[in-house]
Simulated assay, not measured.
Amino acid sequence: MPHPSRPRAIARLRRICLALPEAAEVETWDHPTFRVRNRIFAMVQTAEDGPAAWFKAPPGSQQLLLEAAPERFFRPPYLGHRGWVALRLEGSTDWAEAAALVRRSYRLVAPRRLAGQVAE
């Protein structure tokens, strides 16, 4: 049986993602992905140790996050080699940080006009 905080964490991440201009949720690979104009900017993966949100990160920041907080961040399979980073959503998630990571990822993926509508 899933931990009771898991659905709440995923719902909270969903609200953050879908608040962005033209953001849409599409289930892919049996997991929610969040897109802008069909380009993924965030996704949720679940594993035995709980859900994690995956984000696109600018060059160099994946390594910084992994070194600074390896208990919260990890290099996700499949997309980690492209600089994506994953944030564990178990325990005491810093939701302000999660929202900032979502916005940054969105700005990296979205067309310039839409990206400009999202504050850093």
Rank of each mutant, 00 (worst) to 15 (best):
E120Y: 03
L20M: 14
L101M: 13
E71V: 15
G80S: 02
F55W: 08
L64W: 03
R15Y: 04
Y78H: 14
W95F: 10
A9P: 07
E25V: 11
V118R: 07
C17H: 08
A110D: 05
Q62F: 01
Q62M: 04
E27N: 08
F74Q: 09
P7Y: 10
L101I: 03
A52H: 00
S105M: 07
A99D: 15
V118H: 12
P76N: 05
P58L: 08
A52D: 02
G60M: 11
P111I: 07
R112C: 04
A19M: 13
T93E: 05
R12Q: 13
D49F: 03
R104K: 04
H81M: 08
A100C: 08
R113M: 07
F73S: 13
M1F: 12
P76H: 02
R14F: 13
R75T: 01
R104V: 06
E27C: 05
E67W: 01
S105Q: 07
Y106G: 13
E120R: 08
V44P: 01
E27M: 14
P32T: 02
A24R: 15
P111S: 10
A23Y: 10
G50T: 01
R82T: 07
R113T: 11
F55C: 02
V44E: 00
L20Y: 09
L18W: 10
P111W: 09
A9M: 02
E25P: 15
A99E: 15
L64P: 00
L108V: 07
A69F: 02
R72G: 05
A86E: 02
W95D: 05
Q45V: 08
I10Y: 00
P7Q: 11
G80I: 00
R39I: 03
E97F: 10
P21S: 09
S61T: 12
R113K: 15
W54K: 01
S5R: 12
L87T: 07
L66G: 09
R75V: 01
I16E: 05
G91C: 13
I16D: 02
I16P: 04
P4L: 12
P32S: 07
V102E: 04
H81C: 04
R88Y: 04
R37C: 08
K56F: 00
S92K: 14
G60L: 13
R103P: 02
I10W: 00
V26H: 14
R8H: 14
H81S: 04
L66I: 15
S105G: 04
A24V: 13
G50K: 08
S105N: 01
R112S: 15
I40N: 10
K56T: 11
V102D: 03
G116M: 10
A110W: 07
R104N: 01
L79R: 01
M43A: 14
G50C: 08
L114R: 06
A69P: 02
A42V: 10
R82I: 02
R37H: 12
L89I: 12
F73T: 05
A24P: 03
R6P: 00
K56H: 06
G116H: 14
V85M: 03
A119N: 11
G116A: 15
P21E: 08
